[in-house]
Design a protein around this nucleic acid. Structure first.
Lengths: 223, 223
DNA sequence: AAGCAAATCTGAACGCGTTCAGATTTGCTC
DNA sequence: GAGCAAATCTGAACGCGTTCAGATTTGCTT
């Protein structure tokens, strides 16, 4: 009944499989990589791979968690350095793109399962809620104590920025322009607009928007 | 070489398969219905089903086209009757939800492939561009000649409304409230906001927004 | 060291979407 | 109606993700 014992060799297996899998995904694409490929490359049987990851999508979930940690670390550094809202938001968004730029092909293959709250890999699913919360928290950090955004509007604004960032990622993975310059321009243009728009809009409309989203369950009432 | 001959029995086969397939999808879900089920229920062999629809997803594409036609017809009637912008937009959006309310389960299963421009069933793919154009045209019709929206801002506004409608559909298919009342409220609340917001915003910011989207290729320059 | 349960691994098997080489039917020409 | 090519259909086969009954290994207790 001692279920919390860590088997060093066991967790190492898990990490090993994940690394091998991500390498193969990047090299041959998500669909082009079979679970049998992954198991063979990791020196294990097919069943062993399924012992550590109950499905191919579970590997994607683990990938999310890895990227989220890396993004949080990369953002923290920038947030300690930059003072103004606009540049902080830019740093956070561009840091994410920098991190994901080698994985656009992989993300494109994965995107199919990122809608639809059913799918465990959906950005809206219960399984990803922790990662999602961390991602929104980064934007909350980026807003920080900037006085142009009233304190009680910050959670709403952070969630809006996260939603914008999802849309930008969708554009990013399909962006064929050199070095994804188009996405970079879209990020900067959107943020300019948002930073100009948000303060005036947040005033008169904030109460209505908040009520609307809360009724829909799309925005958590403050705890 | 006479490739344009219509075989009545042939096209009938196609329609028959599609009807059977949609019935099974509604009854047993998308994943719960196999191509073998469809072929058997249609009284054909597996290969014959693949002769008419090159993939399971192709059935989804045909379903899109059917729904789009039905929505256009339902909207046309309402648009001839209603004079003001707000009620026209409400009619169009609610007509769509009325039409799809029996298919929420099916749509949820399908949603997985509606992102990612790779997938042929993506709302952004080349394969669906015709359907997409028709859907945007409905919103253009709904705006009509309403004077609160400047003429040259109408295409942009129509596309924004279509994007909003996509988001609302995403909420709709996962809405577990009775009769999807929450979605209905969200539709009405969003449209109230948009109708109040759009005119003042479209003034000062229109040029910037249009330029931003055109550079990103997200909005076609006027032809 | 013997015993044992949990942790870890194996490989065959299943059902699925899809493909394909070839059979059959249809509509046409002479 | 004989001949023929295109249209339509057949069913076996393939590779995939996933499952599972059972084998093996590990760490602990006595």
């Amino acid at each position: 009944m001692t279920t919390r014992k860590r088997r060093p060799s066991g967790e190492a297996s898990r990490e090993h499989i994940l690394s091998i899998a991500l390498g193969l995904f990047r090299e041959k694409g998500f669909d082009g990589t079979t679970m049998r490929d992954i198991a063979a490359a990791a020196g294990l049987s097919l069943g062993a791979a399924y012992y550590w990851f109950p499905s191919k999508e579970a590997l994607v979930l683990a990938y999310y968690a890895r990227q989220q940690d890396a993004h949080a670390a990369a953002s923290r550094e920038a947030l300690e350095r930059l003072p103004d809202l606009r540049s902080r938001l830019g740093a956070v968004m561009h840091a994410k793109l920098d991190m994901l730029k080698e994985d656009r092909k992989l993300l494109r293959a994965i995107l199919r399962s990122t809608l639809g709250a059913d799918e465990p890999t959906s950005v809206f699913s219960a399984e990803t809620s922790e990662v999602r919360g961390q991602a929104i928290a980064i934007f909350l950090d980026a807003i920080g104590k900037d006085e142009s955004v009233p304190e009680d509007a910050r959670p709403l604004f952070a969630q809006a920025l996260w939603t914008l960032h999802l849309g930008l990622l969708l554009y990013f993975v399909n962006d064929t322009s050199e070095d994804q310059t188009k996405t970079r321009a879209l990020v900067d243009g959107s943020l300019d607009l948002v930073c100009n728009l948000a303060p005036p809009m947040l005033g008169p409309m904030r109460a209505e928007i908040t009520a609307l989203l809360q009724n829909a369950g799309l925005f958590a009432a403050k705890k």
